[in-house]
Deep mutational scan, measured.
Amino acid sequence: GATAVSEWTEYKTADGKTYYYNNRTDESTWEKPQELK
């Protein structure tokens, strides 16, 4: 099967917290998305 390329990108805020942003859905989350686990 084809490997899905994750749409999630990991970013850090100014105070060093990590969050994740999805370019396709324009969604952001503090929790690590399922695709990255």
Rank of each mutant, 00 (worst) to 15 (best):
W8D: 00
W30Y: 11
N22L: 01
L36T: 05
N22Y: 03
T3V: 13
E27L: 05
E7F: 07
R24C: 10
Y21V: 10
T9M: 11
N22W: 01
E31Q: 09
K17F: 07
K17A: 06
E10M: 09
L36W: 10
G1K: 07
T13N: 08
K12P: 02
E35I: 05
A2W: 11
E31T: 11
R24V: 15
S28I: 15
A2E: 12
Y20L: 01
T13W: 03
A14F: 04
E35R: 03
E27N: 03
A2M: 14
W30I: 06
S6M: 09
Y20M: 00
A14Y: 03
T25Q: 03
K37T: 15
K32V: 10
A4M: 14
T25E: 02
G1R: 07
S6Y: 10
N22M: 01
S28P: 02
K17H: 08
T13D: 11
E10I: 09
A4N: 11
E10V: 10
K32M: 12
A14V: 11
E10P: 05
G1Q: 13
K37L: 15
K37D: 14
P33R: 00
T18H: 05
Y21G: 01
W8Q: 00
T3R: 06
N22V: 01
R24K: 12
Q34Y: 11
R24Q: 10
D15K: 03
R24W: 13
E10L: 05
N23V: 12
Y19V: 06
K32H: 05
T3L: 13
S28T: 15
W8G: 00
A2T: 13
E31F: 09
W30K: 04
Q34H: 11
Y20N: 00
Y19W: 13
E7V: 07
T13Q: 04
Q34C: 14
A4H: 13
Q34E: 15
Y11T: 04
N23G: 07
E7R: 03
T9G: 06
K12I: 11
W8P: 01
K17W: 05
E27M: 07
T9P: 00
T29M: 08
N23P: 10
E10G: 01
A4L: 15
Y11E: 06
T29N: 03
E31M: 06
P33A: 02
T3N: 14
K12T: 12
E35H: 07
Y11D: 02
T18A: 06
P33K: 01
Y21Q: 04
T29V: 13
A14G: 07
K12G: 02
Y19D: 01
E35Q: 08
E7T: 06
K37F: 15
W8N: 00
E27K: 07
T13V: 02
S28N: 06
K37M: 15
S6D: 11
E7M: 08
Y19K: 04
T3D: 12
E7D: 12
S6H: 09
T13P: 00
R24H: 09
A4Y: 08
A2G: 13
P33V: 03
A2F: 13
T13A: 06
E31V: 11
Y21F: 06
P33C: 04
V5S: 13
G1I: 14
A2R: 08
V5N: 11
Y20I: 00
Y19T: 02
G1D: 12
K12N: 05
T3K: 05
K17R: 15
E10F: 03
V5H: 12
K17Y: 08
W30G: 05
E31S: 07
W8A: 00
K12H: 09
L36I: 08
E10N: 01
T29Q: 11
E7N: 07
K12F: 06
K32S: 04
V5K: 11
W8E: 00
K32N: 07
A14H: 10
Y11N: 05
E31A: 05
E10Q: 08
Q34V: 12
G1F: 14
T9A: 10
Y19H: 03
E7G: 09
S6E: 10
A4P: 14
K17T: 09
Y19F: 10
T13K: 02
G16T: 00
K32T: 08
S6V: 09
Y19Q: 03
T25N: 04
G16F: 01
W30V: 06
G1E: 12
W8T: 00
T29L: 06
A14K: 12
E10A: 10
N22I: 01
A14P: 12
T18W: 04
P33T: 02
K32Y: 05
Y19A: 04
W30E: 09
Y20F: 06
S6G: 11
W8S: 00
Y19S: 01
A4D: 12
Y11M: 15
A2I: 13
T13F: 04
Q34K: 10
Y19I: 08
A2P: 13
Y21N: 03
N22P: 00
A14W: 08
T29F: 08
R24M: 11
T9S: 12
A2N: 13
E31R: 05
T25K: 03
S6C: 15
T25A: 03
G1A: 13
Y11I: 13
T3E: 11
Y20P: 01
E35W: 06
G16R: 00
T18V: 12
Y11S: 05
W30T: 10
K37E: 14
A4V: 13
N23T: 14
E27D: 04
K32D: 04
G16V: 00
E31G: 04
P33D: 02
W8K: 00
L36A: 05
T29P: 02
N22D: 01
D15W: 06
E7A: 09
T9Q: 12
T3P: 14
S28K: 15
Y20T: 00
S6T: 12
T29K: 06
T9N: 07
T13E: 02
K37N: 14
Q34R: 07
T18N: 05
V5P: 12
T29H: 05
Y20S: 00
R24F: 14
K32W: 04
T29G: 03
S6Q: 11
V5L: 13
N23I: 12
E31I: 11
N22T: 00
D15M: 05
Q34S: 13
E31K: 05
K37V: 14
Y20G: 00
L36N: 07
W8I: 01
T3F: 12
D15Y: 05
E10S: 05
E35S: 12
G16A: 00
Y11F: 11
V5D: 11
P33S: 01
Q34P: 14
G16P: 00
E31W: 06
D15L: 04
T18R: 04
E35V: 07
Y11H: 13
T13G: 09
K37R: 13
A2S: 14
S28V: 15
D15I: 02
K37I: 15
N23H: 15
R24D: 05
N22R: 02
T18I: 13
V5W: 13
K17M: 09
T9V: 15
N23M: 12
G16Y: 01
G16Q: 01
A4T: 13
R24E: 09
K17D: 07
N22H: 02
R24G: 05
T18Y: 08
N22F: 01
L36C: 10
L36K: 04
E10R: 03
Y11V: 12
E27P: 01
R24N: 08
T9I: 13
R24A: 10
T18S: 10
Q34A: 15
A14D: 09
A14N: 09
V5E: 12
A2K: 08
Y21K: 10
Q34F: 12
T29Y: 06
D15V: 02
A2H: 13
E35F: 07
